[in-house]
């Protein structure tokens, strides 16, 4: 079996909804039927065959050769297998994923990994705003799994996160981890204003002191932390980081006391 490959022929004329092209939804479908699936979101109504050249036959191993910011909802809701985008992705990449791996070898748009519940999403470039965050009207953001951004993340990364791990390696914009319910957000490379704004529980782990925190965060000392040692080793073992992030006794700020106040921001002293 060869990887089911969608090669982008030209820049798409409209935004595309790629959510039908997941391992589950393509299982058992012939290639000529795949080419007939409508993915265009405007009056053009482009079909897969209009946009991509399709090759290969293994739906558990899907590759999009060539990326575009118009490729929305890549691998939405996938439960297993692997999807790889060689290039950029549009909005909501890996949204509501439950399993498998999604790799984007480029940049991702807003709401990447939104509400994901399991699996592993890795973005080698930058991610847009609202990384892992809920769409309007949803109560919780990311609910499990691992989301890695090797580049930067836009504002409100990990907004309303509830479970799982998000790691951003080259810095995030303002309000990272805002309204977190629980879970773990790792940001190396600095954060924008007020990380953890209105967080209830959860951990925001930084490689340096944040440049600002909401005034309702309080200083909580820096005792030795086995948790810091365990998460440092985990991040290195998973190939997410190369060096320990926190060390053995990170500084802790607790908050946000404007809400429940059981969250924490940890960084090496």
């Amino acid at each position: 079996m060869k990887a089911l490959t969608f090669t982008l022929v030209a820049e798409p004329p409209e935004r595309l909804d790629l959510s039908p092209l997941t391992p589950e939804r393509l299982a058992g479908i012939e290639r000529r039927d795949i080419e007939k699936i409508q993915i265009g979101m405007s009056k053009h109504g482009s079909k897969v065959g209009d946009i991509f050249r399709v090759a290969g036959n293994d739906p558990l191993d899907i590759v999009f050769e060539g990326g575009s910011t118009r490729l929305d909802r890549v691998a939405e809701g996938m439960r297993g297998g692997s999807v790889r985008v060689v290039g950029n992705a549009g909005a909501q990449a890996g949204r509501a994923m439950r399993g498998g791996t999604l790799t984007i070898e480029g940049n991702a748009g807003p709401h990447a990994g939104s509400g994901m519940r399991g699996g592993r999403l890795e973005i080698t470039g930058n991610a847009g705003e609202h990384l892992g965050a809920p769409l309007a009207g949803e109560l919780a953001g990311m609910n499990g799994g691992v989301l890695i951004v090797r580049g930067k993340a836009g504002a409100f990364a990990a907004d309303r996160m509830r479970r799982g791990l998000i790691a951003v390696l080259k810095g995030s914009a303002d309000n990272a981890g805002s309204r977190m319910i629980a879970g773990t957000l790792v940001v190396a490379g600095g954060t924008g204003e007020m990380p953890g704004y209105l967080m209830r529980r959860g951990s925001i782990l930084l490689d340096r002191a944040p440049k600002s925190l909401s005034p309702s965060f309080v200083e909580c000392g820096a005792p030795e932390s086995v948790f810091a040692a365990v998460i440092d080793r985990h991040l290195i073992a998973e190939g997410i980081l190369k060096r320990p992030l926190l060390g053995i006794a990170p500084q802790k700020y607790g908050g946000d006391n404007a809400v429940l106040g059981m969250g924490e921001v940890l960084f090496p002293r």
Partner: peptide, 23 residues
């Protein structure tokens, strides 16, 4: 004040004690 953490498929509890935390 205990904190639940799932790290790589393993589930841990962090319990505050007088020298820091019991993991």
């Amino acid at each position: 004040w205990q904190i639940s953490k799932k790290i790589g498929g393993r589930h841990f509890w962090r319990v505050p004690v007088m020298d820091g935390e019991f993991l």
